[in-house]
Nucleic acid binder design. Structure first.
Lengths: 147, 147
DNA sequence: GATCAAAGCTTGAGTTACTGAAGCACTCGG
DNA sequence: CCGAGTGCTTCAGTAACTCAAGCTTTGATC
């Protein structure tokens, strides 16, 4: 019966279970790599979200948490010398978070050291890599609410 | 040049960026749905990890955190009536976390209410769903370190 | 152009998450 | 037995997080 390949189409629940497992494992790899450089996962996540300058408020949006929370996270990043606050040109209420050179370096190190993630990518052939990438990009606008 | 389709094979960095974005968005959808039922994301994650009975120690492994941390999380789940601790038959040191009926119901509600995730699944055709599912399953053993 | 609602950030209080070290209860090999 | 090791909890101590309240600045309205 199966038309081309052996697989049957998975249900939403099955997809969700599989995605959740992959997401959790990815996150653990990320957190472990960040910890090796003295960063909490929140801090590393924030660092990844400020690769280009972002106002505090918008950063809270990206991280999906309260603005008052971001104050503390950026305080710590600033204390570590990985980012700094700059005044906005147009609006004096706004403070813009800018990543430092050192911040950029550490972010690259963390990403480079996610060995399980890299290993898992190596099990994919070109076709699978392309498929995964395009599926991610297709799904992202809906999933993140920026339709 | 391009052989069959328009896509070129993405680099590891591109794949990682895309995966990170999808993972973050998925997690936010999850956390928001959990919050609507009065659960923190840690609590909801723990609930999902005890669909079958699990010893405390093993649960810590699944959640990727210290065992002492799990004590507090399970305390709160127990206080909410969503899970309970049972003695292990063979080893009296071990306590096994068992999800309650109410816990199972709330977990199902939370998963059912992840509307962005469900919406994003709807943008995938059968072929893409199968591809995503099989890629997740293929990648999982390496990514989670259970090779 | 003074007023006032609203936006952006911080502070403070209070809970949860998390770690590391220490402690107790139990197991198991000698 | 006894002693090393395992499983869970407790106890500091820090970070993450939320909500409410505060301050400055903005922008629209009168």
């Amino acid at each position: 019966m199966g038309s081309t390949v052996t697989t049957t189409v998975p249900t939403n629940a099955e997809l969700m279970e599989a995605l959740a497992a992959v997401g959790a494992a990815y996150f653990q790899d990320f957190a472990a790599a960040a910890a090796r450089h003295g960063l909490s996962s929140s801090q590393a996540k924030a660092l990844g979200a400020v690769q280009e300058p972002v106002p505090m408020r918008a950063l809270a949006g990206r991280l999906g948490c309260d603005a008052s929370n971001v104050t503390g996270i950026v305080d710590r990043l600033e204390a570590l010398g990985l980012a700094r606050r700059e005044a906005s040109a147009g609006d004096r209420r706004v403070k813009i978070v800018v990543i430092s050179e050192q911040g950029r370096e550490i972010l690259a190190l963390v990403r480079g050291e996610m060995s399980r993630t890299h290993q898992s990518f190596e099990t994919l052939d070109d076709e699978q890599r392309s498929a995964l990438h395009s599926i991610c990009l297709q799904v992202l606008p809906v999933l993140s609410g920026r339709q």
